[in-house]
Design a protein around this nucleic acid. Structure first.
Lengths: 146, 146
DNA sequence: CGGCGCAACCGACGCTTTGCCGGATGCCCG
DNA sequence: CGGGCATCCGGCAAAGCGTCGGTTGCGCCG
């Protein structure tokens, strides 16, 4: 694929925040016709620059409890587990990791009760061998995490 | 807003991976009519469960290795340790947690070699009793983490 | 210099998808 | 039993989308 020009970057900047705006609106903002914009977006998708579109799952209210769930699986290929996890908005991030652990699941829940509920749900998903809960008491250092 | 039911979770699971599929397709997958699905999605958006839609942009971060360091301290008040950790730019986030662990340190390094270096540095900080490394092989779910 | 090819743009056409409505169904509670 | 409420469905008009032919701008080479 060729180099991205300024308009492509505009498209990425806009779509990375609002992935579902109509092409007409997007075209207007970057100063191109709708069809030209359509072709550019299609090209960005096909070349892999745009890998997909994700819904940003939010949270109902404040006063949240964060926790790490350290998961060991029975068989490492975590078939189905990830789909199950994605169904819960409380699940903020899931990382497959090396070592004796398999998954690190980060959750954000409104209460400890709710944390227990979520924890139990995940523990009984099937394929989960061990699950350790580590509630975040304090955020000591916080920078942008990739 | 009320509690999320199974269909709502299905919607979230699907949209968090493919935010731009047609409502008709989504409706077919969850087993509802298109209009009912439309109303559910609209409700999820309005109530803030779906905060927005974002394009997933590829190759932003080429070649960085992420890892979790699971730290157990000798004496829990981790005074001094945090100051030390904050001196390393590779350290992205540090959380004090409950349970048998004390700290979860998230790092982002350009290579495995560099990870080993950082790991050893942290392990020998003084006050560190145990340190487990979990290298992130894959980011399975990624939402905004607070 | 002039003509050719390529790449990108535009506007228009027809199909698909969406938002919105009325009406039907199931459930709760007085 | 009979409203009230929530949720579902199907259908319609409007808006969205992919795709096409035609145009413009630019570099290249005869």
């Amino acid at each position: 694929m060729k180099e991205l020009d300024a308009k492509d970057r505009d498209i990425l900047a806009i779509l990375s925040k609002e992935a579902r705006i109509p092409l007409k609106t997007l075209a207007g903002r970057i100063g191109l016709s709708r069809s030209a914009t359509s072709e550019r977006v299609a090209s960005l998708e096909k070349s892999g620059v745009i890998r997909g579109y994700r819904a940003d799952i939010g949270q109902m209210d404040a006063g949240l409890v964060c926790a790490f769930l350290l998961v060991t699986l029975i068989r490492t290929p975590s078939i189905g587990i990830l789909d199950q996890l994605a169904r819960y908005p409380e699940v903020r991030r899931v990382s497959s990791v090396s070592g004796q652990l398999d998954l690190i699941v980060e959750v954000e829940v409104p209460s400890i009760d709710r944390l227990n509920t979520v924890r139990d749900l995940i523990a009984t998903l099937g394929g989960v061998e061990d699950l350790t809960t580590a509630i975040v008491l304090r955020r000591d250092i916080e920078r942008a995490v990739g």
